[in-house]
Amino acid sequence: MEGVIALYIVMLAAFTGYEVIARVPVILHTPLMSGSNFVHGIVLVGAMVALGRADTMLEQIIGFIGVVLGAGNAVGGYVVTERMLEMFRSSGQKKKPKEAA
């Protein structure tokens, strides 16, 4: 990839990450931490490529470990985030009508 383009991507992605979080109310910080934890589970894709291109036994072993860990990050991150947010939803469903302050 062309170096300068890569730097543009980094800059824009960094601003995006900052902006997405900056508007988050304090009350949602932890689910968001869990959600962003899930998002970097995309490392699974890279681990798959590393394993897919592995030639030697050593590369295969490390690549295998990488994919196991990456899949754990992605799947685990999704499950716990979803469960946490599910808890929020079930609270919402039982919402009392006289909620107005």
Binding site: A14, G17, Y18, A22, H40
Partner: peptide
Amino acid sequence: IIAGIVVGSAGTLL
């Protein structure tokens, strides 16, 4: 790259 940087920047702020 994009997911990593977004999480890196958001995570730092968080």
